[in-house]
């Protein structure tokens, strides 16, 4: 399985040599056929499941930027998701804005909220930061729960699905094109950021704050930037969730349990590893869906999995694969050198 993945990785690399975006375009085109494939093999419900996977991919990839790249503990991400969802829903419902306007505005609002959630990171670290962000995330949920205009107990109902002209994007497969496109773009930009000076600054902060600052990195600024960027992902995911038929939001979709599930995705996939986050989001969403019958044991299983992961596989699935790929490259390089010398 690992060798399959490493082969796959080198195939993608050779494609990328032809043109930087080629692997992305090919992946995108292939994914356009996924709903048909899924419907034919598993049934159309699994397209709905894929849609939810895409939402969680966006969330996990965004969380990875602040947690994985920049090393800032946050338990407030789900609150940002809630803000994105509720803002877009209310803009669409109360002001009749189309999704294509309400979603960007929601992302903007979420960014501001991301800045607020990030503020404690300037002074706090580790468990204290976790507590502070948890407080902020939870207060978003409680705010929604007690404010009738934000849905309170009844929730926000009948949030309109996105439309293009007269066409309403509401079927599972058409919504898939929307969320999948968002997820692919999200993943792509996550790589762009990781490979830029900004990404290196994030990682430097994660590795050593003092060394980063004397290297000329404005640490508070980049920490906040990481929170804001992750908020873009959360806001987008939130808006996509809000408008996904049947278009209903309730504050109990944004509790600590959801946050822990999200953390599990990132940890399982491998903290700081982009593809790991993607794989983690898919694996957790699918397994959760498939083990629903064992609802009684689910929280227990999730807890134990988390502990096992942290102890035995701290780098997650992504870390294991990445190591395999690096090892393989190393071996190849050495073989080349040996051939050269002999």
């Amino acid at each position: 399985m690992i060798s399959f993945i490493t082969n796959f990785a080198s195939a993608i690399e050779s494609l990328a040599k032809i043109h930087r975006l080629l692997p992305w375009v090919i992946a995108y085109i292939l994914l356009l056929f996924l709903p048909n494939l899924i419907t034919a093999t598993f049934g159309e419900y699994y397209v709905d499941l894929a849609n939810r996977c895409c939402l969680f991919i966006l969330l996990a990839v965004g969380l990875n930027i602040v947690k994985g790249f920049c090393g800032q503990v946050t338990v407030g991400h789900i609150g940002l998701y809630a803000i994105g969802a509720v803002t877009s829903a209310l803009l669409a419902q109360n002001y009749g804005l189309p999704f294509w306007l309400s979603a960007p505005l929601a992302i903007l609002v979420t960014c501001c909220a991301g800045l607020v959630v990030g503020l404690p990171s300037v002074r706090l670290e580790g468990a204290y930061l976790a507590l502070a962000t948890l407080g902020l995330g939870e207060s978003v949920r409680i705010m929604i729960a007690v404010t009738p205009a934000l849905g309170s107990s009844t929730g926000i109902m009948m949030i309109p699905a996105p439309t293009i002209g007269d066409y309403v994007i509401e079927s599972f497969d058409h919504y898939f094109y929307l969320v999948m496109t968002a997820a692919i773009i999200g993943i792509y930009f996550s790589f762009v950021i990781l490979n830029s000076s900004t990404g290196r600054a994030f990682k430097a902060i994660r590795e050593d704050v003092i060394a980063a600052s004397v290297s000329g990195i404005n640490v508070p600024f980049y920490k906040l930037l990481a929170f804001v960027i992750s908020a873009i992902y959360a806001g987008l995911a939130g808006a996509l969730f809000a408008h996904m038929p049947p278009g209903y939001l309730h504050h109990n979709n944004f509790t600590v349990i959801e946050m822990v599930t999200l953390l599990l995705m990132v940890v399982l996939g491998g903290i700081g590893n982009i593809w790991g986050g993607v794989v983690g989001a898919i694996v957790v969403t699918v397994i959760y869906d498939q083990t629903k019958d064992y609802y009684f044991y689910q929280p227990l299983i999730f807890g134990i999995t988390m502990v096992f992961l942290v102890v035995f596989m701290p780098r997650g699935i992504g870390g294991v694969i990445e190591q395999a790929i690096v090892k393989r490259k190393f071996i190849e390089k050495h073989e080349e050198q040996n051939l050269g010398t002999s």
């Binding site: 930009f189 950021i193 000076s197 900004t198 590795e207 290297s215 990195i217």
Partner: peptide, 28 residues
């Protein structure tokens, strides 16, 4: 920065000399 590569370490050192802005860096 022990989890970053050797090259990345010196690139971080070169951070102040980055010739592009932050928004540009995010857009790639």
């Amino acid at each position: 920065f022990s989890e970053m590569t050797v090259l990345e370490n010196v690139m971080v050192g070169n951070h102040c000399k980055t010739s592009y802005g932050i928004v540009e860096s995010l857009l790639g």
